[in-house]
């Protein structure tokens, strides 16, 4: 049943796992971009930006991701076209399924990522910044040399969590027809009427991806905290 090739579902499931990984990476990239923007808005002195970021976080924390995916799937084109018409583009635009899913998960998890990044920037000790200022650094140099590397170190554990959450959330994209591992498992179990086998394989695939990325993040953390004295 899990045979490779056209007679079994093995190669389809493997391909599904790869699509899951790809869509998870894209979702996480979008989530990082949105999260950085949200964190910047919340840390800025500009009140409307702070309020907008707060509203975004409340919305994303309150609405199930499943609904966000459905809303973007059915309403994404409409939204895209109304944005495009502001820039003078008329005509029909659409988002492919892969992009729809990645954006939906990215938007949904961006609120969480944003809070992680904000927390990391706030955790940078004031003394470090003062010391850098005393050395004559300011503006972008200060950000690049002092704030960003330190914040990254503090953010890594949280970002690792965010990545795990994102990876699992991508299972929801199956409902709009992206053939990732969950959708593939549903197709195969419907066709063979052997649901346990395929959902179990899917579960193992997620577990494998989670464990593998845990190691990656652990290595990244070890790298980022090199030179930190441990008690």
């Amino acid at each position: 049943m899990l045979a490779w090739g056209d007679a079994g579902w093995g190669d389809e499931m493997a391909r599904g796992a790869l699509v899951t990984l790809a869509v998870a990476i894209c979702s996480f990239a979008i989530s990082l971009i949105i999260g950085t923007g949200t964190a910047a808005a919340k840390l800025s002195g500009f009140l409307p930006a702070r309020l907008a970021a707060d509203a975004y976080i409340v919305l994303m924390r309150g609405i199930p991701d499943l609904l966000i995916i459905y809303l973007l799937f059915f309403g994404g084109s409409m939204a895209l076209m109304s944005v495009a018409s502001v820039f003078g583009h008329t005509g029909y635009l659409e988002l492919p399924i892969f992009a729809t899913g990645a954006i939906a998960i990215g938007i949904a998890s961006g609120a969480y990522t944003g809070e992680v990044i904000r927390g990391a920037f706030e955790a940078v000790p004031k003394g470090q910044i003062e010391a850098a200022r005393a050395c004559g650094m300011s503006g972008f140099l200060l950000f690049r040399r002092i704030q960003a590397p330190l914040a990254l170190r503090y953010a890594l554990p949280g970002l690792g969590n965010a990545w795990q959450v994102t990876l699992k959330e991508t299972a929801l994209i199956s409902v709009i027809g992206l053939v990732e591992i969950m959708r593939q498992a549903a197709i195969a179990s419907g066709s063979t009427q052997q649901p346990f086998t395929f959902y179990f394989v899917a579960a193992i695939a997620y577990l494998g991806l989670t464990l593998l990325s845990n190691r990656g993040f652990a290595a990244a953390e070890a790298y980022a905290t090199r030179g930190v004295r441990r008690a």
Binding site: A84, G91, R144, A148
Partner: peptide, 24 residues
């Protein structure tokens, strides 16, 4: 390369890839 540039490039690429005009 600055972080902003990377973001801008990524975002640009993404929009370009995502919003294929349906005419095509």
């Amino acid at each position: 390369m600055s972080r902003k540039l990377v973001f801008a490039a990524l975002a640009g690429l993404f929009v370009a890839a995502a919003a294929l005009p349906a005419d095509a």
